[in-house]
Amino acid sequence: MEAELADGERVKLMRLRYAGAANRWGFASYYAGSDRYEDSLLPTGSPTGTPADALDCACRLHLAAPDT
């Protein structure tokens, strides 16, 4: 999955992996510095969840402003 920012820049976020049920998916986050995907955990610590859970987590990692 990719996101398109307001300025038109496209940012890679993640990819989903089927985990055996329609509502159970694993995901891997994209790391631009190494140009690769790495398996990730949800904030709950679970390696699987719904696609919406994975997208929410990836967006927080890649698109949220850092705390100041």
Rank of each mutant, 00 (worst) to 15 (best):
L55K: 15
Y31P: 01
L16A: 01
E2C: 08
F27V: 00
C59V: 03
L55N: 05
S29F: 13
A54L: 09
R10N: 03
Y30W: 15
A21P: 14
N23M: 11
L16V: 01
A54H: 13
T48A: 06
P66W: 10
D67F: 07
T68D: 11
D35H: 03
A65M: 11
S46Y: 12
D56K: 12
S40F: 06
T48N: 05
R15D: 00
L63D: 03
D56I: 11
L42K: 11
D7Y: 01
E9T: 15
D56F: 06
D53T: 01
A65I: 08
Y31C: 03
L42Y: 11
N23K: 13
Y18V: 13
L41I: 08
A21I: 10
T50C: 07
D7I: 01
E2W: 08
M14E: 02
A19N: 07
R24D: 02
A22L: 01
Y37T: 03
A28E: 15
S29D: 13
G45N: 03
R24M: 03
H62M: 08
M1K: 10
A28K: 04
L63K: 03
G49W: 07
S46G: 10
A6V: 09
P43I: 09
D56S: 14
S34K: 12
S29M: 11
L61F: 11
C59G: 01
A32D: 04
C57V: 02
R17H: 11
P43A: 07
D35C: 04
H62S: 09
C57G: 00
A32T: 01
M14A: 04
Y37I: 05
Y31R: 10
R15Q: 10
P43W: 08
R17M: 13
R60P: 08
L13W: 12
E2N: 10
A6T: 06
A6G: 05
P43C: 05
D39H: 12
K12A: 00
G49E: 09
G45M: 04
W25H: 05
L61E: 13
D67P: 03
T68P: 13
T44P: 06
W25A: 00
G26I: 00
M1H: 11
A32Y: 05
E9R: 13
P43M: 09
R60M: 07
S46E: 14
S34W: 14
D67A: 15
A6K: 11
T44I: 02
L13S: 05
A58T: 08
G33F: 03
G26A: 15
P47M: 04
D7T: 02
T44L: 02
D39R: 08
G33R: 04
L13M: 06
A28Y: 06
A3C: 10
G33A: 14
A21D: 15
N23L: 09
L55D: 09
D35L: 02
R24H: 09
H62T: 05
G49S: 13
E9W: 07
R10D: 03
N23S: 09
C57D: 02
R60Y: 12
R36P: 07
K12R: 13
A32K: 10
D56Q: 12
W25N: 00
P51N: 05
A28I: 01
F27H: 02
F27M: 02
S40G: 06
Y37C: 08
P51A: 05
E2R: 11
G8K: 02
